[in-house]
Write a protein that binds this DNA or RNA. Structure first.
Lengths: 232, 232
DNA sequence: CGATCGATTGACGGGACTCAACAGCAGTGG
DNA sequence: CCACTGCTGTTGAGTCCCGTCAATCGATCG
């Protein structure tokens, strides 16, 4: 539970971890400058060369990855929220690994790759902030995508348990949600119907409302598929 | 292709990225001290409190994650090789996220969490090394686990394409490999038979030999399942 | 050789994908 | 106002891939 929860909006740079690391308030300047994007805006595409690194101040961003090298087909991968970075790959490779689109109206702080490099060299605490955020994101991004992670209703229930408290999650379209869970929209629709029939959620065409977390947990945990054995 | 390939063994600390960041050769001392473990040794278990952080100097380590919070059932997650860290989670949470076992005889450099913290505060380049390695590992660790990532033969072919050059990959038991790919051993066995019947590999009970990479690629790419559509 | 474990093969059933049709909803324009 | 269009989400029917269970085979070890 040490993960930051909720869409914790950070407005003041003096309370922003990046701002703090930059010494804002003590005469330091933060290389990341704020910018707003409206819902649906494309931030970058996989395969593009990394020009800027972004820090999400508020809102939610959908990250999609391409399965093939040519970046033709993309599949939803994760939802990044306030406090996460976008484009950190730029520090270790030339091109974006993933595409990013604003899922809601967002406030992003961006800095050119060059400025980030300068920042990393100049501020002793800068690298630690990026390391910290990178590790947290890595822990958090554990997509449940296949039968090995449970049946379709199980994965749907698990996702709802984890993301229902987020206000922005209610705006995730069914099609995208299905992609995040590694299933087809039809399968998601059927899964939600099963979950709703057990009284754990109430749903309309566009919204999902959790009414019984305990029951939802029961659905998510029920193990019909045993995970593969590990080495002993 | 900027990822380091092969089981690049690092023996001299003056050529090790961690050693370089520690200033070995310029009077600095590296907090990570080498230790050897034999194949099969358990390095740590998920849920244990993080005592030490390890850097892999040579060999391969199997990382397994537990699906449930109680850490009862574990499923293979990734194979980490020379140049990767183990236990970096310790910097942002108290307990190990994953279990680790030596897949081959390994040489590990370990440092206590406290010493790592001291090291991070004292050496300006230390955090950058960890950040760099963490990002690379994050890019590399992209497990293909479900139907959404392709059929069983496709995932098996994709894994072989990526890992066949690694000498240590030939020692991965079928059962473990199946877990890494999110399928049962029986399904892996059938998949390999299909791939072999197309002439892309030759296999015995214990070994897999790639004989036709082009054909293997064709099998991996053939799209019988379309990935879910991304937002446009 | 007997015991044990891992890998393979076969038979079977179920869950998810595919394809298709339909319903709900917004935008457009006559 | 309503037909028309386009898009998203739902529902149904059919197919097939993969998980499950069971038996067999191979390899290793005492």
């Amino acid at each position: 539970m040490e993960q930051t929860r909720g869409d914790d909006e950070v407005t003041a740079c003096t309370r922003c971890p990046v701002g703090v690391a930059s010494g804002v308030g003590e005469g330091g300047r933060c290389p990341f400058v704020p910018r707003k994007r409206t819902s649906g805006a494309v931030l970058h595409l996989a395969g593009d060369s990394v020009e800027r690194i972004w820090f999400i101040k508020s809102g939610a961003v959908l990250v999609t990855r391409s399965r093939d090298e040519e970046h033709i087909e993309e599949t939803p991968w994760a939802v990044r929220r306030a406090g996460s970075f976008l484009g950190l790959e730029g520090l270790v490779r030339a091109e974006h690994l993933e595409s990013a689109r604003a899922l809601t109206d967002v406030t992003l702080c961006g800095a050119s790759l060059r400025n980030v490099e300068v920042w990393l060299d100049g501020r002793p605490t800068a690298a630690r902030v990026l390391l910290d955020r990178s590790l947290r994101a890595g822990i958090r991004e554990r997509p449940l995508r296949g039968n090995a992670d449970g049946t379709a209703p199980q994965r749907a229930a698990a996702w709802l348990l984890e993301h229902a408290p987020e206000p922005s999650s209610r705006q995730v379209p069914r099609r995208i949600l299905a992609g995040l869970l590694g299933m087809r929209p039809e399968t998601l629709s059927r899964s939600l119907r099963v979950i709703a029939s057990q009284g754990a959620i109430r749903q309309t065409r566009a919204t999902i409302e959790v009414v019984d977390r305990a029951r939802l947990r029961a659905i998510a945990r029920r193990r019909s598929i045993r995970p593969a054995a590990a080495a002993d």
